[in-house]
Amino acid sequence: MKRSQFWDHTILVLGALFMLVPVVYALMTSSHDAVSIYKEGLQLSPGGHFVDTYKQVLTEAGGFTKSVTGLTMLWNSLVLGLGFAFGKIIISMLAAYAIVYFRFPLGTFFFWIIFSTLLLPLEVRILPSYEIVQGLGMANTYSGLIIPLIASATGTFYFRQFFKSVPDELVEAARIDGAGPLKFFIDILVPLSKTMIAAIFIIMFVFGWNQYLWPTLITTDESLFTLVRGMKQILQVWIGAQIPDTNQAMALAVLAMLPPVLIVVIFQSWFVKGLVESEK
């Protein structure tokens, strides 16, 4: 027993290191100065330029971008993550409520329309999506960035599953207690869904924050760049430079991963629950 547990731990430690080391490289390297990284390669130990580097990437334009600071990009990422998560939750809760709790003509038809969006990811309809959004004058706007991403029905699907698992008797008890559809939704269903909302919020925030392809197409104006969107620009500048600012590039990468990683780690149990429940 002892012996086998030893190997279990060994494999787990190796696995954890495999996941951890690349990010440790990114973090440590960002605390050195560009010249020493250029000479000595990526670093695994802390250097003395941590504060300088982060101050510089957060507050100064230039370096990797012409006009935008890291702080602006961070803000844009936050807008995208939060806007996407809030928008998705509100819209999909309403839709799922209608689908599960109402009997009405065309209900099934609308259900299938909404769920057909699960069939085709954004990537396979990217070109016409881009043209339509641009045609609507939504290129380089927050709404153009966020709303088209909400089209997929994943949130509606999660909430539908959850609402279906709410005992039938609750809506019956509520009807006997004199609650109409609106009252039932606000007084009972929404408070009951709190944990589910939190779980979906986390998943959606991470999903929104991490969007890449759509922001790449729809935001060409640097002031709307998110951190994730900015990665390619950063890399391209980095390649072109004589002595590249690897420390700053890594610092921006660390900033791009920090908020979603923190949220996932802190709200781990909700997040895992939400993720695993969605499979059912």
């Binding site: 005992p167 008797e169 609750l170 019956e172 008890a173 509520a174 009807r175 006997i176 207690d177 004199g178 609650a179 009972i188 009951l192």
Partner: peptide, 16 residues
């Protein structure tokens, strides 16, 4: 149901 002047006790209680 709310206007029938009845009250119901459910099998699984259906408490909020």
């Amino acid at each position: 149901p709310a206007d029938r002047d009845i009250a119901m006790v459910f099998q699984n209680y259906a408490l909020y």
